[in-house]
Each structure stands twice: as structure tokens, then as C-alpha cells.
């Protein structure tokens, strides 16, 4: 809503408002073009959802934004500076929470990992851990090991660890994909509330088209082989969003139709 749709396809966008900018980004891995080419901008505070058929490189695009991959063509910039490596302002929520958490550390210990790394003095950590756990609805579970928690709780814990970094940007790779429908809806609303409170920018990759519309300010659809931008929709739905009212909104249904048609055509 804040960002006009046109900014998306500009080849060399003005860096003034873009927090993350993909500038003719291409990626070739082992002689195979995975992405060719993506240009897009994400402005501060925006929630951008990325959808696409499998093989469209949406996870790869997210890893480029995280600095975990370097593009073979074009450039990825964060606040105008080229991304050479991951940065602390950018947190990544991985889909496989079971692998991303340290099984030998408790919930508190997992959050502490991020706090230790950003150099927070030990005396301040405990209060911050309690605060973060409460924020994601895990108050009272500090001493539990990840394996003692349900999938939803583990993903909440991973989100809390990401928030411990005090990130400006949250990159989320199908974070709720492995969860059941009820848990997923609950986490969607919690995430929106958290993001509204922190003002963080979110890039959210998902294969769930309705989830993309429900969460996003904008939805970008990627085309496969090689990955490139095929569609871009501005989601003009009132916030805060509501699981029933938003999903019944005529605009929601219109966007849903457009997105389904796009995916069907791209396969």
C-alpha cells in the first residue's frame, strides 16, 4: 500500500526508500540458471510475500536477500549497500525449525545464543529472554528443550531467537508450511501483531496463496525455470486483518482468483 506497484520493475531504482533492492539479480549454480533476472524493491516496514510454483527459486531469492548466496549477476543491496555476507539486521526464520534450533539448549538457551552473539552482557540476558518468550507466547517454557515442544512452539521459539537479534528485516522461508491449519492461522495473527509492534520489514516466502494475500502488503509471483518475476499485486485490505472478515472480503477473493490463475498458467 505504501509502495506503488510500478517501482517493482524499474531496472535501477532510486535507493532512497528501498531497504532491500534486487537489481537485475541473476544466479547460476553449477551451470544451471536458477534465477534470471529479478529486480524488485522492498521498502522499510513493508510485508512482501513471495509465491510461485516449485522450482521458481523463491527460497533461493530469500537466501540471496539474506546474504547466504551471492548473485552471479546484478546486485542485492541493503539500505543502498551491496550485501556481501549475512548481516545482523537481517534475521532468517527457517522452515525446518527442528533443524534450526539447538537441541542441546533449552528454549532460554536458544534465545541466549543470539543474545550472546550480539554481545549482550550476561546480567541483562535473563530479563530479555523472559520478555522475548512472553512476546511469542512461550512464557513459562524457558526450561524446556525444543524436543519437548510441539512444532508450533518450536517455530515460535525460532521467531523469538530471530527477534533477539533486533532485526530490521525478517526473512521467513515457508515458516508455517509444516504446521497444521489451526496452528498456522494462530501464528499468522501473532506474527502480524509482532511485526506491527516492531515495525520490521518482512519478506515471507510461502506456497499458500491465501496466506500470502492474508499477510502481505504486496504479493510477488515468480515464474519457474529460471526464476523471474511474473506478477506483482498490491494488497489493499484493511489492517488489522481478521481470519474471517479479511478472507471473505471481495478484494481478497479477487486477489485470490488472480493469484490462482497466475500459478495455474505458470505450471
Amino acid at each position: 500500500m505504501a509502495e506503488p506497484a510500478l517501482a517493482l520493475v524499474q531496472a535501477s531504482p532510486p535507493p532512497a526508500r528501498a531497504q532491500i533492492a534486487f537489481d537485475n539479480v541473476a544466479l547460476t549454480l553449477g551451470g544451471k540458471a536458477i534465477i534470471d533476472t529479478i529486480s524488485l524493491e522492498v521498502s522499510a516496514g513493508e510485508i512482501l510475500c513471495v509465491v510461485g510454483a516449485s522450482g521458481c527459486g523463491k527460497t533461493t531469492a530469500l537466501r540471496l536477500a539474506a546474504g547466504l548466496y551471492q548473485p552471479t549477476g546484478g546486485s542485492v543491496r541493503f539500505e543502498g549497500e551491496p550485501m556481501r555476507a549475512p548481516r545482523r539486521e537481517i534475521a532468517v526464520v527457517f522452515q525446518d525449525y527442528g533443524k534450526a534450533l539447538l537441541p542441546w539448549r533449552t528454549a532460554a538457551g536458544n534465545i541466549s545464543l543470539a543474545l550472546e552473539t550480539i554481545g549482550m552482557p550476561a546480567a541483562q540476558r535473563e530479563a530479555r529472554i523472559t520478555e522475548l518468550l512472553a512476546k511469542v507466547g512461550l512464557a513459562g517454557h524457558a526450561a524446556k528443550y525444543p524436543t519437548e515442544m510441539s512444532g508450533g512452539m518450536q517455530q515460535r521459539l525460532q521467531i523469538a531467537r530471530c527477534l533477539a537479534q533486533d532485526p530490521k528485516v525478517l526473512l521467513m522461508d515457508e515458516p508455517f508450511g509444516a504446521l497444521d491449519a489451526m496452528t498456522r492461522q494462530g501464528l499468522q495473527d501473532e506474527m502480524l501483531a509482532l511485526v506491527a509492534a516492531t515495525g520490521a520489514t518482512v519478506v515471507f516466502v510461502t506456497h499458500d496463496l491465501e496466506e500470502a494475500i492474508y499477510l502481505g502488503d504486496r504479493v510477488v509471483g515468480l515464474l519457474p525455470h529460471p526464476g523471474r518475476v511474473g506478477l506483482e499485486l498490491t494488497v489493499d485490505l484493511p489492517r488489522p486483518r481478521d481470519q474471517l472478515a479479511t478472507r471473505e472480503h471481495p478484494e481478497f477473493l479477487r486477489l485470490r482468483r488472480a493469484l490462482f490463475d497466475f500459478i495455474k498458467a505458470s505450471e
Binding site: A66, L68, A85, P86, R87, R88, I90, A91, V92, F94, D96, K99, A100, L102, L113, A114, E116, T117, I118, Q165
Partner: peptide, 19 residues
């Protein structure tokens, strides 16, 4: 995946080994 978590957090090499 844990090494990636460490990279995203900018963990120093020694911390990656010991933690």
C-alpha cells in the same frame, strides 16, 4: 542448517566450534 544459523548471527569462528 545450524551453520547457517551461525552465519546469519555472525558468530565468530571459535563460538561456532564451541557453541
Amino acid at each position: 542448517r545450524l551453520y547457517e544459523v551461525a552465519r546469519v548471527l555472525h558468530m565468530p569462528r571459535l563460538a561456532v566450534i564451541f557453541k
